[in-house]
Simulated assay, not measured.
Amino acid sequence: MGKDRITRQVVDELYVEALVLSDEAREAFNLRIQETEGPLDDSMKMALSVEGLRTTTRLMNVLAWLLNQRAYLSGELSENQLRRYGELGDERQSDPVQAAQLLPHTRLLIRDSELLYARIARLDRGWRNRPSATASPVEALQGRLATAFGSA
């Protein structure tokens, strides 16, 4: 197995990890649950809302990418379809000022989601930077040149 090849086992394990983090995020950013532990001021509510949206969006991008990989590995998507439509969505980094207002467990959850996103982003870059299996020899050479000279 080449270092740029993504296996079904890797995708499945990352998918489970992303689902667990998503479930934890749903619970951590639920304002109704947070308010049962005591009243929240407006800045805390804003921090929970904004960071909750950033975290859940980050996790949904990861899950969408993993589902596309699963579809590709199952033969439901072609390599061209995956290259065209399966790119990982942009990440919105957390705001350290807002995150500092949150409980330590919630900050850890945000960090874990950022680390998972970074891992997926590395896999995505590695997969995209390899020559396409359906590329012509000229396209493969152009891809290698673009990668070597940083224009990919």
Rank of each mutant, 00 (worst) to 15 (best):
M44A: 14
V11S: 02
S151H: 09
E13D: 11
M46T: 14
N68H: 11
R8G: 03
L108R: 15
L145N: 06
A121F: 15
V10H: 11
T106F: 05
S94I: 13
D124W: 15
L82C: 01
T57V: 06
S113T: 08
L102V: 02
R5G: 02
L82R: 08
V20H: 09
E13C: 04
P39E: 07
N129S: 09
S151D: 10
P131R: 03
L40V: 06
L40D: 03
L40P: 01
N61F: 12
S113E: 02
A47Y: 05
R8A: 01
L123N: 03
G52T: 01
A135M: 13
A152D: 14
G89L: 06
Q81C: 08
F149T: 15
D12Q: 11
W65M: 01
Q101F: 07
E79F: 03
H105C: 00
E87Q: 14
R119S: 05
W127F: 04
A148I: 12
R83N: 07
L19Q: 06
D112P: 05
V11I: 01
Q34H: 07
P137A: 03
R130E: 07
D95T: 08
Q142L: 10
S74C: 04
G2Y: 12
S132N: 13
Q81E: 15
N30K: 08
R83Y: 00
T55Q: 07
A28L: 00
T57W: 09
R58W: 09
